[in-house]
């Protein structure tokens, strides 16, 4: 009986939707962290994450342990995030809003081209740390593999860690303050500029984990994150751009919608569903699902 429930179409789509949605949620969370602190949409988030994943996971093909590669990818992500903020973004603060948009779209192209030229000949499948074989129940396949459980656990763990740091630590309090009220924070001695860099470092580290999850069991390719980035962008917009909870909810919602539409309706329609969900949400709540106010009182 239990086996039938777990192997039903609804359950199968649910597992697939959650697994893909949680990665979208992770990337959406990165976008929100940066948007909240700097009011910049990081259009290069996907490409930067993928570049970091290349730096780390490419070493798997040279015999380095998977977990060490994951750690290297995260560190590469953090370093590149910090450098990007310092070198590319900092000169743009206070400039017209279109400037960072143009710069980050250009940077997206540069990063993808760079990754393709550096690792062009080394593309191969990244071996997963856990089995990709689906569990079975009474001869029926349940669409969950040990590796999928690992991916969801890692993504949820990272989200919880980020939430706990932001909510309960002094540095988290200062980062939230710097995002909400930069001038007041400076008047209290908070080093706002350093915290903005830290926001980019955290976001890029988290992004690297998302890219590693996406690339595990697949071929490493510079464009692996492009589709996910678009979904994550929509997920963040659904949540209201400044709500981490909204971004995560939006991500899972998009993952689930994609799977159900793909299975019950048509694979051709599936890519459009997230846009339809976005339009529907923006019709009902233009500020997004989880943003309380459009103006802030300080």
């Amino acid at each position: 009986m239990m086996g039938n429930v777990l192997t039903s179409r609804i359950a199968t789509d649910f597992f697939g939707g959650v697994t893909s949605g949680i990665v979208i949620a992770l990337v959406a969370l990165c976008l929100v962290i940066i948007w909240q602190s700097t009011n910049i949409l990081n259009f290069a988030q996907g490409a930067m994450s993928m570049f970091a994943a290349f730096v780390g996971m490419n070493l798997v093909f040279h015999g380095v342990n998977y977990w060490l590669c994951l750690l290297i990818a995260v560190l590469a992500g953090m370093v590149s995030g910090g450098l990007t903020e310092r070198v590319l973004i900092r000169p743009l603060y206070g400039k017209p809003e279109i400037n960072p948009v143009v710069v980050m779209i250009g940077f997206l192209g540069v990063v993808e081209a760079l990754a393709a030229s550096i690792w062009n000949n080394e593309s191969a499948t990244v071996p997963p740390p856990f089995s990709l074989t689906y569990f079975e129940s009474n001869g029926h396949t349940i669409l969950i593999s040990p590796n999928a459980i690992f991916q969801v656990t890692l993504a949820v763990g990272v989200m919880l860690l980020v939430a706990l740091v932001f909510r309960y630590t002094n540095i988290g309090l200062q980062m939230r303050a710097a995002a909400l009220a930069p001038e007041v924070s400076k008047l209290l001695g908070v080093r706002v500029d350093r915290l903005l860099t830290l926001g980019w470092i955290v976001s890029s580290g988290v992004g690297a984990i998302a890219a590693v999850i996406v690339s595990t069991g697949q071929t490493l390719a510079p464009t692996n994150m492009d589709g996910i980035f678009v979904s994550a962008f929509i997920a963040a917009a659904i949540g209201g751009l400044s709500s981490p909870v909204g971004a995560v909810t939006g991500g899972v919602l998009i993952g689930l919608t994609n799977y159900y539409v793909l299975d019950f309706w048509s694979p051709n329609i599936a890519p459009l569903t997230s846009v339809v969900v976005l339009v529907a949400v923006l019709f009902v709540r233009p500020q997004g699902l989880f943003t309380k106010n459009t103006t802030r009182r300080v």
Binding site: N170, L173, Q174, A177, V184, L188, G189, V190
Partner: peptide
């Protein structure tokens, strides 16, 4: 900071 509690506002004042 309106979004912070009284305690969080005060704590922020001590961190530097």
């Amino acid at each position: 900071i309106a979004e912070f509690t009284v305690e969080e506002n005060l704590k922020l004042g001590t961190l530097a």
